[in-house]
Design a binder for these strands. Structure first.
Lengths: 109, 109
DNA sequence: TTTCGTTATATTTGTAAAAGTATAACGAAA
DNA sequence: TTTCGTTATACTTTTACAAATATAACGAAA
């Protein structure tokens, strides 16, 4: 018997960050490209763009910085704020898993 | 900024219980009927039945007891085990919310 | 100045989940 | 024994969401 969870953070403007978006941000970090990140995640570029767009709209400051054009077409990088968000979210997520495992043990099901 | 979560419990046979199924079980408790519970939840009877069926298949012992036929057509009641599951789940869920609120405060976002 | 891969966006197509429709079996009470 | 609302199940239709397709703009480097 396993207890599972999904967490996310919202602002008044919508969902700021969630598990899937964290995964996408981390792939942007490692690839330097939203296009490549989407491919590695096996989702369409359009879906990836919408996710990032929604997060940016829900955020007071941008999570990513994009460059359109250039010798390699451009690219996308994660801002320092985006990186801090990744770090915080992952810490909270791990803590939540550990907390829930302990909670489940308290109850005999 | 709000942190939100969804939790659920799985066994090897699938999802045992989740937020939506808890809501459904509680409506079965109060109405004595899967049919009425589905209507109050604004989902189709077929969907409600599938949810309950999946939970029963994932459970070592039944969460509900059904009676087919009778002067009022029959009905469905929640077993003592089902009731204990509701109680445990809701306690864990509330504890999780409180935990996450505290966790979020630790991080300045 | 031409090239390239990227961002950004709109539109169409496909698909999986939900809803809707239909129907049989059931059995206590009137 | 007839009635009734329910459980249980199959099948069809609808809908929402994801994927696919298409296309323009961009700008550093060769």
């Amino acid at each position: 018997m396993k207890i599972k969870s999904k967490i996310w953070i919202e602002t008044d403007e919508g969902i700021l960050i969630s598990e899937g978006r964290i995964q996408l941000l981390k792939l942007i970090e490692s690839t330097g490209s939203l296009n490549k990140a989407a491919k590695e995640m096996n989702i369409s570029y359009q879906k990836a763009w919408k996710l990032i767009d929604a997060s940016n709209k829900a955020s007071a400051e941008p999570l990513i910085a994009t460059q359109v054009g250039g010798n390699k077409g451009g690219g996308t990088v994660v801002t320092p704020y985006g990186k801090s968000l990744i770090e915080s979210f992952e810490k909270i997520n791990v803590a939540c898993w550990e907390f829930l495992d302990l909670e489940l043990k308290k109850h005999s099901l």
